[in-house]
Write a protein that binds this DNA or RNA. Structure first.
Length: 490
RNA sequence: CGGGGCGUAGUUCAGUUGGCUAGAACGCUGCGUUUGGGACGCAGAGGUCGCACGUUCAAGUCGUGUCGCCCCGACCA
């Protein structure tokens, strides 16, 4: 494998990802590509995200369940636009057995094991879940049905990209069935809000969210809503969706309930999910030239204590470090890096690359002065702190880092958002600093397509603020009541 | 699937008009000295030059085929 053609920007990202993931080295001659290994440190971040998100999902009344990874092909084709949307990116299981090859070298597919009906490796679980739901639901008393699943899914994308678009990825998908359209639509909005709150409060990311255009919506949905973040290079990154499925899937899968009035009715459904891509968005939002910068909330190691010593002072320094660690017992994720075979400078650098929010340096000089040196990752500021004040200072510092990352993210988003009144202006912004561009669009897909093919920018979403704002479509000049967000996206 | 770039040590790469025992840096192992911003010295391990066939006295280098990878496009979380 060669990275000769790699771009500058891409190199930056690989640098950030070093401790998190790596490309999976799959067998030679394999046509499987674009898979990733999530390293322990990266998975620890994912687990922290999972933990908090799972809590919030359960608070909304959902229960976790698990459905099969294999979906019979026939299920998949029950909803016409759904199959159309995913048909081009599926992995398909056709056989179930191998045998020794004739020449005795290795194994080949046993043709006699061909499946009567092929199985699709789930690209999303609507079909397999809703087939089951049709048996779980028969009365209004069974509703609402609120299910969430943490799973891996496979999408055989034509072109993959480490972290942002891999063939296999992890996600959470929530699926709800309601008796009425109003209740379902209300939740579609609530879950979108939950994602945006989570991003702000936990990942220190300011985002925008809103309705997707007809051409960008989920295959099989009535409406799709998305949440988007603005990256440092001016490109948008969508990392979560919430779909209003209406009765489309209920009708396709025969989900019916008998209502209080005794009539059989189709219920209304929604689904929503965020993936490991959210981690990618978070990393690309905060990180800098020295490596990752993690918000304290999701940093597996929040404080790292680095002892600096020679052989004579070793014991004294280490025991001083242990005292500091004990004084920080209320904080999860405090580590002492007592490795003797690497220098202090190496450790500083290494923990910076891992994005650890606070570093405490402890050497003989500090012991002499009953203090320690506290360094924050986001600004690099160093501060000498008296031993008795360390606990308070660390707590304040962690909070301050979290807040400051959020305001930085907010500033980035605001500074990279531009309102334009003409197509010329939009093109000018997109060819210079990119970012989110607010522009009026009549809703006609031809105008949308023209912008996409000429500038690479797509409609990202229609925010609440954009609804009802009057103006003229920047392409055709027709009256428009909607100001859309356009952007070049990942 | 179109356009471009590549395949040599664990990694990143060098290798001239074909020529001697295929190199460097980083990483790895051992010993010693080090440790307040990516330490240093010495010794060592590590290769079927993607694969196949061909041209040649001679192939990492040239030709044909094949497999794979990366980047850009169309599609997508």
């Amino acid at each position: 494998m060669s990275n000769k053609g790699i771009t500058k920007r891409e190199q930056d990202y690989s640098q950030w990802y070093l401790d998190i993931i790596e490309r999976a080295e799959l067998a030679e001659n394999s046509s499987v590509r674009g898979c990733m290994v999530i390293k322990p440190y990266g998975y620890a971040i994912w687990e922290l995200i999972q933990k908090e998100l799972d809590k919030r999902i359960k608070e909304s009344g959902h229960k976790n369940a698990y459905f099969p990874i294999f979906i019979p092909k026939s299920f998949f084709s029950k909803e016409a636009s759904h199959v159309k949307g995913f048909a081009k990116e599926c992995a398909i299981v056709t056989h179930y057995r191998l045998k020794e090859s004739e020449d005795g070298k290795g194994v080949v597919v046993d043709e006699s094991s061909k499946l009567k009906e092929e199985l699709i490796v789930r690209p999303t679980s609507e079909t397999i879940m809703y087939d089951t739901f049709s048996r779980w639901i028969s009365s209004w008393r069974d509703l609402p049905l609120k299910i969430n699943q943490w799973a891996n899914i496979v999408r055989w994308e034509r072109r993959t990209r480490p972290f942002l678009r891999t063939a296999e990825f992890l996600w959470q998908e929530g699926h709800t069935v309601y008796p009425t359209d109003e209740e379902s639509k209300k939740e579609v909005a609530e879950m979108l809000q939950m994602y945006s709150d989570f991003a702000r409060e936990y990942l220190a990311m300011e985002t925008i969210s809103g309705k997707k255009s007809e051409s960008e919506k989920f295959a099989g949905a009535v409406d799709t809503y998305g949440i988007e973040a603005m990256m440092q290079d001016g490109k948008a990154l969508q990392f979560g969706t919430s779909h209003d499925l209406g009765q489309n899937f209920a009708k396709a899968f025969g989900i019916m309930f008998t209502d209080k009035d005794g009539e059989k009715k189709y219920p209304y459904q929604n689904s929503w999910g965020v993936s490991t891509r959210m981690m990618g968005a978070m990393i690309m939002t905060h990180s800098d030239d020295n490596g990752l910068v993690l918000p304290p909330t999701i940093s597996p190691v929040k404080v790292v204590i680095i002892p600096i010593f020679n052989e004579d002072e070793k014991e004294k320094v280490l025991s001083y470090c242990k005292d500091i660690k004990e004084s920080l017992e209320d904080i999860d994720g405090v580590e002492i890096d007592d490795r003797e075979y690497v220098s202090a400078g190496f450790k500083f650098n290494e923990w910076e690359k891992k994005g650890v929010p606070v570093r405490i340096e402890v050497g003989p000089k500090d012991i002499q002065n009953s203090q320690a040196v506290l360094v924050r990752r986001d600004t690099g500021e160093k501060e000498n702190v008296g031993i008795e004040k360390i606990e308070d200072t660390v707590e304040t510092m962690l909070k301050s880092i979290q807040d400051s990352l959020l305001s930085k993210s907010k500033e980035l988003l605001v500074s990279k958002t531009h309102r334009v009144g003409s197509y010329e202006e939009l093109k000018a912004v997109l060819s210079s600093e990119k970012g989110f561009v607010l522009a009026h669009w009549c809703g006609n897909s031809e105008c949308e397509e023209k912008i996409k093919s000429e500038t690479k920018a797509t409609t990202r979403c229609l925010t609440k603020e954009g609804i009802g704002s009057s103006g003229k479509c920047i392409i055709c000049g027709k009256e428009s009541k909607e100001e859309w967000v356009f952007s070049v996206s990942y």
